[in-house]
Every structure is written in C-alpha cells, then in structure tokens.
C-alpha cells in the first residue's frame, strides 16, 4: 500500500525537467519527509479503520459461516453455508414475515415521506415564515428515537392522543400496536413522521434550482397549477425525488431502533424486521452465527440498492 505511487506522482516524476536534476536529492528528501508526516497525520484514522472496519468485516464474515455461542473465541465452529441455508429453509421466519416486513416497512416509509415532503415542499416556498415552518418540520430529526418511540407508543394507547381524536370524531378505539394488522402500518407512520423533515429539506433545495422563467412562461401560456406541477415541477425535481426515495429506502431497510422501542417486533412477529432479528438472535438468543448470516443478507440488499443509486447518479451526471 505504502509503496504504490499515485498516478499524479508518477506523472510528476516523469515530467521532472532534467536541468533540476542536481536539486532532486533535496527535493526527494522533502517529499519523503512529507510522506512520513502525512502518514503520522493519518495514523489514528488508519489504525481505527484497521481495528473497527477491516477486522470486524472479516470477523462478521467468519461468524456468518460458523456456529458459536459467543464465549470463547476458540469455540468458533465453522459450518460453511449452513446458517444461510437455515435462514431460507422451510419453516424459517426469516423470508416471511421478517424480510417481507423489512421491505414493507421501508417501502411504506418511502411512500408516506415522499408524499408528505412533495406536498409540503411545493407549498412551503410561497409562504411567510418559511424558516419557522422548516424548523418545526425538522424537530423530530434531532430528537432521540427513545423519545419519538415512547411518545408515539403512548399516543397509540387506548387512552392516548390518537384514540382520543378518533373518539372525539365518533369513531371507536383501535389498539394500534397490539393488533397484528395495524402494528406495522402504525410504526411506518412514525418512521415517516420522524424522517420527513430531511426529505422536505432536499426537495426545497431542488425546487429552488428550478428556473423561475419556466413558471413565468407557463403562466403566459395559461397553464393551471396541476399542469405546471406535472409538466414542469415534477420532471425537473426528478433527481431530488429519486435521491429522497433511495436514501429513505436505505435507512428504512436498516432501521430497527424505533421498532425496538415501540413494539420489540411484536405482536408475535408482526413488526419484526431483519436488523432487529439479527440483534435478537445474537444478544438475546446467543445464536451468533445465524445473527451474522442475517446481517450479511441484509447488507447485500443494502449494498445492491446503494450501488444502483451510485450507478444511476453517475449515469445522470454524464448525461448532464
């Protein structure tokens, strides 16, 4: 690693004028000194990544192909792909409902947050006190998941705010988090509520970059608000929309802190998601192999989405 020359450095070396050759010795020393200093500056970072990035990835891969109860490192028992086949075997709950729940949770969050952020972002930029509204929408993002989860959990209770409003409207109470049919949609609403602020932020920035002249031209042509939105705003906002979709989807796939606070995956496994299952298999049931295998499957899904995003935006960048 240390011995590889960067393309830049190689080029510089190749183009060094001959007349400067006598000075090259002193130059070379200065450059070597700078390399030493650079690696001193980078030492804490490289050391950290070696211990907390490279080593863990190797260890996680090893564990995913082993049986281990989590005590002595010498007891790690390699079992090949057994953990992975176990996850997808008949009778395993990993594919359904856990992975299905994960996808539904992520997709539901994307749909709600996208709808909410598009509506708010398109309306917010012609309002007074814009800064105030944006600040309010942003509050959940800086609030710990323990506060968000517990407040909403309490609001969903029979004696809580949501049912209080339903009762006031003459509707009956629902045990949102205790009913397997409503539990997952209920936590999706909370996740969307908690993350919509940053989506609004991204879309507002995207809207600001739409040239005003387009709207003026559309107004001259007598286009109505719906037409303007469909023909001008939406197409020009597409990169921002896609960005919001993918990043929300990614964080939805991985997030389990909120579910852990609100339902612990219940009732039954109605809200169990892949990352939560990984956590519980390891730290509650001591099945580190299965947990690591589950983590890897989820990681592959996340990686595929990430690479699709990178690929898409790189292609877009070349088009522009």
């Amino acid at each position: 690693m240390v011995n590889t020359l960067t393309p830049e450095a190689a080029e510089r070396a190749a183009h060094r004028p001959r007349s400067l050759a006598p000075a090259a010795g002193r130059h070379g020393r200065a450059r070597r000194r700078q390399a030493v200093v650079a690696y001193l500056f980078l030492a804490p970072t490289l050391l950290f990544f070696a211990v907390f990035l490279v080593l863990p990835l190797g260890f996680a891969l090893l564990l995913s192909m082993s049986r281990w109860t989590g005590f002595r490192l010498g007891d790690i028992d390699p079992v090949g792909l057994d953990n992975f086949t176990g996850l997808f075997a008949d009778g395993s709950t990993f594919l359904a409902p856990i992975l299905t729940n994960t996808l539904l949770f992520a997709l539901g969050t994307v749909a709600l947050a996208l709808a909410g952020s598009v509506l708010v972002a398109t309306c917010i930029d012609r309002l007074r006190f814009q800064g105030l509204w944006r600040t309010l929408y942003f509050l959940p993002i800086v609030t710990t998941v323990v506060a968000v989860g517990n407040v909403w959990k309490y609001m969903y209770e029979p004696g809580g705010l949501v049912n209080g409003v339903l009762n006031a409207l003459g509707l009956g109470s629902t045990a949102f988090l205790q009913d397997p049919d409503t539990a997952l949609p209920s936590v999706v609403v909370v996740q969307a509520w908690a993350t919509v602020g940053s989506a609004i932020l991204v879309l507002t920035a995207g809207l600001k970059s739409v040239p005003q002249a387009y709207y003026e031209a559309a107004a001259l042509d007598g286009a109505g608000p719906v037409t303007v939105f469909r023909r001008i705003t939406l197409p020009l906002l597409r990169p921002s929309l896609l960005f919001v979709c993918i990043t929300q989807f990614l964080s939805g796939l991985q997030s389990f802190a909120l579910i852990n606070v609100m339902t612990k995956g219940g009732p039954g496994d109605a809200t169990d998601v892949a990352a939560l299952e990984m956590y519980r298999q390891a730290f509650s049931y001591g099945d580190w192999g299965t947990a690591s295998a589950a983590a890897f499957v989820l990681f592959l899904v996340v990686l595929a989405v990430t690479l699709a995003q990178l690929w898409f935006f790189r292609r877009k960048g070349e088009d522009a």
Partner: peptide, 16 residues
C-alpha cells in the same frame, strides 16, 4: 467506509 451500514458492525464491535 461510508458504504457500510452501522448494523453490520454491531456484533463484531461488541466482540472486539
């Protein structure tokens, strides 16, 4: 390093 989701590291970090 920014591509790796945090949950991947939960188990190995704890063991380390």
């Amino acid at each position: 390093t920014m591509m790796f989701p945090p949950f991947v590291f939960l188990i190995p970090h704890f063991m380390i």
